[in-house]
Design a protein around this nucleic acid. Structure first.
Lengths: 168, 168
DNA sequence: CCCAACTAATTGAGAGTTGTACTACTCTGG
DNA sequence: CCAGAGTAGTACAACTCTCAATTAGTTGGG
């Protein structure tokens, strides 16, 4: 979403010059590509497995954790989701029996979310279709080098959160 | 969102083998990076300009169109949004005076959305901050080559929609 | 021991998004 | 010129996400 130069002729701020024509082109390619990819993967998962992307991601993270269990806060951070959002998502999933919540023994305030056997089964069932979609829409469309470059660039972006409001 | 191998030891489907360890790493970098970027840009726009990313994008597209006007369907397609979603977004924006809708003279079924002067002013006001954020979170974190590679890869992804259900 | 300050997670209300069904209009062929 | 097929946009309802307020638990100083 979003582009940059609102229209030809509009002056830019001194500390925020418009992107160059090339840069704009890449940026827009990113926006469109990301939108389509999310669209396509979400649709596939929803259709074939009845899961949203968020739910799938929750399950993957839990499946990789020791005891298939993580603290809610850890899970939220690793997914880049708000606490509130995760609470709602997990609550929905718990109603469907995909995950279970239990008080954390170490810290009375904490809650552990665990992937149930049913949840694990659902994940195992959903994964092949999802992988197929990731290949179809992403991996197979790129050379190894391109894919590597994409990964590297995106890793650079997710680096230090740097939530400084401005240049402060 | 989403990763790929649900857990070590789970067998993959013949036609959808798990990604290699490296591929998984890139894919995950993509997911996290994309989530953070969207997060950061959306927050900045909301805070500084009172606009959502979707709204900003609508305004950019309109600002670039002849007469600052586009058919609803064209707009929806170019944004990769559902018709329904666009209708709601534009309705909200119309209430705030950012856009106007008018019957399309050429085709009685169609509706033209036009960016109003107020909308244009809002876009011009919002753009510098947005560009600054795009630079801070994306452009400045990448070398020119990296950014170019990112753009190229994403362009390849957004190519032919190829909405074939499988390999069909 | 108790209170204040802090952290973890949840809750509820409100806004946004989506799918489905429906209306209005256009176009083609009889 | 009218019927039927097709297209564009909207309305409603169900669901998801965000923000602000709330509950529960921990920690450290007096």
């Amino acid at each position: 979403m979003t582009v940059t130069a609102p229209s030809p002729g509009v002056p830019s701020a001194d500390d925020a010059p418009w992107l160059t024509a090339e840069q704009q082109q890449w940026w827009r390619a990113y926006l469109t590509g990301a939108a389509r990819l999310t669209e396509a993967l979400g649709r596939q998962l929803e259709r074939d497995a009845g899961l949203s992307l968020s739910e799938y991601e929750v399950m993957v993270r839990l499946s990789e954790a020791p005891d298939r269990t993580l603290r809610m806060a850890e899970l939220a951070d690793s997914l880049v989701h708000s606490r509130s959002r995760l609470t709602h998502t997990v609550a929905r999933m718990e109603r469907r029996g995909l995950v279970a919540r239990r008080a954390c023994p170490a810290d009375g305030r904490g809650i552990n979310a665990t992937l149930t056997d049913a949840g694990m089964a659902a994940l195992v069932a959903a994964a092949p279709g999802h992988v197929r979609a990731v290949r179809e829409h992403l991996v197979d469309r790129l050379s190894d080098d391109e894919f590597r470059a994409l990964g590297r660039a995106m890793a650079a972006i997710s680096g230090p959160t740097a939530d400084a409001t401005a240049s402060a």
